[in-house]
């Protein structure tokens, strides 16, 4: 029986009492679910959606930065940026692999992406008009991503957690290089400092939106937390992130663009201005500055590469025929 057939069969068998009991027991003791375990269909679907969205985000997320590979202002920065964008391709592949263990092919996930049927992180629909955006993306966007992702290393689904361990280790270089870019700029000329502050102004709020809607408006969170996929609420992670940013911003000498931002001794948390969710929803709805461009580029690469992929598959077929005949 092929894996696919077996998986769909598993899906048609909700009445596996023994499987369900084992699943519940594993979740209760915070152990891991592995690909061949019985799992509720909703758990499988949630994971496929989350992991593939995450993979798409890595792949689409290559674009705003690849925009500057050819123009990086020093050879060292060019190499760093190239290695970073390359890592993102790698992260996408680790995640597609993890999703594939749940019974969905990468070609199907890629079709969902380029046909606009899948989501990816809205943050990558913003544009990167200046070099300082490379710094702000590393510091703020990768920083927020790491906050979100470190707890996912303990996600209950084994292949997802293992992929995230790899990814998080590699991401720590991403955030540090972003911080360094901004630090260099802030220690540079007046024009460079302005460039850095402008980028921080543009990326700060979108990076806070990466944690998702406030807890009381996040419908799927409770189930994900019960399944040990999600470990902390959106607002908890957002607070944690801002708490890390504030002292880092001081080191950089940049101002975080929120006049209301201050530590509240009573609550032990940061007070901050209301997040403008209307803009977030606009971008999510496809009306962001670069939504169309991001998908177009991915579709083009995929379409224009079709003849190469076919050639390699055909060559492999001919070679195996040759080997069989010999």
């Amino acid at each position: 029986m092929t894996a696919a057939a077996e998986l769909s069969l598993a899906g048609a068998e909700p009445q596996d009492d023994e499987g369900r009991a084992l699943f519940d027991e594993l979740i209760a003791k915070d152990s891991r679910i592995e690909p061949r375990d019985w799992m509720p269909e909703a758990y499988r679907k949630t994971l496929i959606r989350q992991i593939s969205q995450h993979a798409h985000s890595e792949i689409i997320g290559m674009q705003p930065e690849s925009n500057w590979i050819t123009r990086a202002p020093s050879l060292k920065r060019k190499a760093i940026l190239m290695a970073k964008v390359q890592d993102e391709a790698g992260h996408g592949l680790y995640l597609y692999s993890a999703a594939q263990t749940l019974g969905i092919g990468r070609d199907e996930m890629m079709s969902q992406l380029i046909e606009g049927r899948a989501r990816y992180s809205s943050i990558f629909n913003y544009t990167t008009p200046t070099w300082a955006d490379m710094g702000a993306i590393g510091w703020l966007v990768d920083g927020a991503a790491i906050c979100n992702q470190v707890p996912l290393c303990r996600a209950s689904y084994g292949p997802y957690g293992r992929a995230m361990v790899r990814i998080c280790k590699e991401e720590s270089f991403h955030q540090r290089q972003g911080f360094e870019i901004l630090l260099e700029l802030m220690q540079g000329t007046e024009a460079q400092r302005e460039m850095a502050q402008d980028a921080v102004n543009r990326w700060y709020w979108p990076s806070l939106q990466m944690f998702g809607p406030p807890d009381d408006e996040s419908p799927n969170s409770a189930q994900s937390m019960a399944w040990n996929i999600k470990r902390f609420s959106n607002d908890e992670l957002r607070q944690r992130f801002v708490g890390m940013l504030v002292p880092q911003a001081e080191v950089l000498g940049v101002t975080l663009p929120d006049p209301a931002l201050r530590f509240n001794d009573e609550t032990g948390e940061y007070d901050m201005s209301e997040i403008d969710w209307t803009e977030f929803n606009e971008v999510l709805a496809g009306r962001g500055p670069a939504n169309a461009e991001r998908l177009r580029r991915r579709r083009e690469a995929h379409d224009e590469g079709a003849w190469v992929r076919e050639a390699a598959a055909e060559y492999a077929r001919k070679q195996s025929l040759k080997a069989a005949a010999a």
Binding site: M1, T2, A3, A4, E6, L7, P35, R36, S97, Q100, T101, L102, G103, G105, R106, D107, R309, E310, A312, A313
Partner: peptide, 15 residues
């Protein structure tokens, strides 16, 4: 029974 993932339908196989 093989590892999960290979669906037999993709242009390039899984390794």
């Amino acid at each position: 029974m093989s590892t999960p993932g290979e669906l037999g339908t993709e242009p390039w196989p899984l390794w």
